[in-house]
Design a protein around this nucleic acid. Structure first.
Lengths: 338, 338
DNA sequence: CTGAAAGCGCTTACAG
DNA sequence: CTGAAAGCGCTTACAG
């Protein structure tokens, strides 16, 4: 494994100048087909590999996109990240990824590293908290950056925000449970101060109020463990509750497990709706009704939006909301006799 | 957002030469403390950001590591990838990640892209199949690459392999179920021709044979859906089976759901053991016994191994096996009366 | 359509 | 301890 061949070696091998090789690399139309073929053949013979870093230095068109995610172990974010990465890859961009594990400090650090690596743009589902220094760094470096799923910086002109329509999702879930005959519906999980929680709760509260019902909020971590605890809590403290909308599918799946453990049936007897529509929601028993955010499609769309921004200068709208739909399954729905 | 400042700007601002700035950047001890401070201050004033691509070009020490994973939507691989990425980040390396979705074609494509981006090393959990061209490309490019979790290329001298000790895990699981009193134990899920399946099954078969029992193999996809189908299948076709070892936790979790659906209790009546020890296994109801691979620790270890290889030239052993341990939980274990 | 030259932002010897 | 010079592998005008 000695030195990798460069365009100079290729030029010599093909008997042309190195500019010609460079033009071939860029598929310039001003190179004759035979010449092009000769150069390509020389590359193959030498095992030439294009050095993007060198190219980038001169032209400063990176080909690297940063993806910063607050919790990559949560399937909702995993599905999003994977979808974005694959869409970027299909369009010729590589993805530098980092999990911040909800730590603003880690986030600042990985963003700084990505800027140094010359990412052409950044997609971030930010951690809450911190002093916002990382956004300043992005500003200074002039890196286009989009906030997704969560909004932490309000300068949406510079850091456009995109997310599913959480409020509408909360409403959909309530409407569905009322239609199924629920009389008392709780909202479980989600840290109360956070934007996403506030939105999901707001839809729930508004729709419930419209129907003349009072809300019952049980905020908490967005985990399976919390869902499980909450199942026990509701059975003990609120036996009148006959339906729950969970902050996300993890909480809902935990709640299903908690009810199973307590010997309480889920479905007609107690209806549960999750949020996000992760793949697993279709596979649980009973299958989980969820507010589907079509996160895979959302990821593809975000990838396209960022690429258009970078490449064509088409700035995204300051705030984009994508539609959600209710995925009705057995955890909340009893099939009619018809 | 005009041009980013370069070391020349910093040098001018600080009143030194650009070599001095470069030395400060590398924390060279041969720069006087005051000089260093002056340069740092100038950088802060200008909002200088280090350009790693330029640095890399000259020194060819990238700072980018490639991580190629066959199925990033599977929590086992997600937990691994996240762990590797965070460990690399802590040591100053950025991770370029790609999901190949089990496609050898996609895999070849993303590996080529990563080589062009100048990754200093590659960690790959490969897709099965394909013509192995991507390994040739790595060879030609001289990029150190480790195979993890799955071995597809046999040249472990050049592409060292590391994985949990799957065979031992299969044995552990059987020993445990026999000790719990199982008389007939099935092995469910896993595509029979694949290496990982063969190893996990081999441990199961060997240990069972040692105890004078015959195996019952139900190979298939490694999914929740297959686990669920298999629950029904076993109840219908093999009512004598009273325990199952699943290829992985997803199959096991699906089987638990399938039994719940069929109204069959899991635990004393039918014991289930999963494989991998993903986080969710501790949260299901009943909690899932699993062959724990401590995938987070495995990821940290792989990150360290690759970095040592690159930085110190310490080649990893051709084949590394890490220990597994049984995580005994309610799905297979009835607490004694003591 | 092709060649010679300069430059991207940094590092690396090599002098002072 | 610091400065002047060359070079990493490519792209980009600019001539021919």
């Amino acid at each position: 494994m000695d030195r990798r061949p460069t365009i100079i070696d290729v030029a010599r091998e093909a008997g042309v100048s190195k500019s010609t090789v460079s033009l071939v690399l860029q598929n310039s139309p001003s190179v004759r087909a035979e010449t092009r073929a000769g150069v390509r053949a020389a590359m193959a013979r030498l095992g030439y590999v294009y050095n993007r870093s060198a190219a980038m230095m001169r032209s400063s068109s990176a080909g690297l996109i940063g993806l910063v995610i607050n919790d990559l172990r949560n399937p909702f974010f995993t599905e999003f990240a994977t979808s974005v990465q694959m869409a970027l890859s299909a369009r010729g961009f590589a993805t530098v990824v980092a999990n911040t594990a909800e730590s603003p400090e880690l986030q600042a650090q990985v963003i700084a590293a990505m800027i140094e690596h010359g990412v052409a743009a950044l997609i971030i589902s930010p951690a809450y908290g911190g002093d916002g220094a990382c956004f300043e760094a992005l500003l200074r470096a002039g890196v286009p950056a989009m906030q997704v799923l969560r909004k932490v910086d309000d300068r949406t002109g510079r850091f456009p925000f995109a997310a599913p329509d959480y409020v509408a999702g909360g409403r959909l879930a309530v409407r569905h449970l009322l239609a199924e005959g629920c009389r008392r519906i709780a909202f479980a999980g989600g840290v109360a101060e956070r934007g996403v929680t506030r939105e999901r709760m707001a839809g729930y509260i508004a729709e419930l109020a419209g129907a003349g019902h009072a809300p019952l909020l049980v905020p908490g971590r967005a985990t399976r463990a919390f869902g499980r605890e909450t199942a026990r809590f509701l059975l003990r403290e609120h036996p009148d509750v006959d339906g729950a909308i969970c902050f996300n599918d993890l909480v809902a799946l935990g709640m299903i497990a908690g009810f199973a453990e307590a010997g309480q049936a889920v479905g007609a007897a107690f209806r549960i709706v999750g949020f996000d529509g992760i793949e697993e929601s279709a596979q649980s028993y009973p299958a989980l009704t969820s507010v589907g955010c079509d996160i895979a499609a959302f990821g593809v769309r975000i990838a396209a939006t960022v690429l258009d921004w970078m490449q064509e200068g088409k700035a995204p709208p300051p705030e984009l909301r994508t539609p959600v739909e209710l995925l009705v399954r057995a955890s909340s729905h009893t099939p009619g006799p018809s």
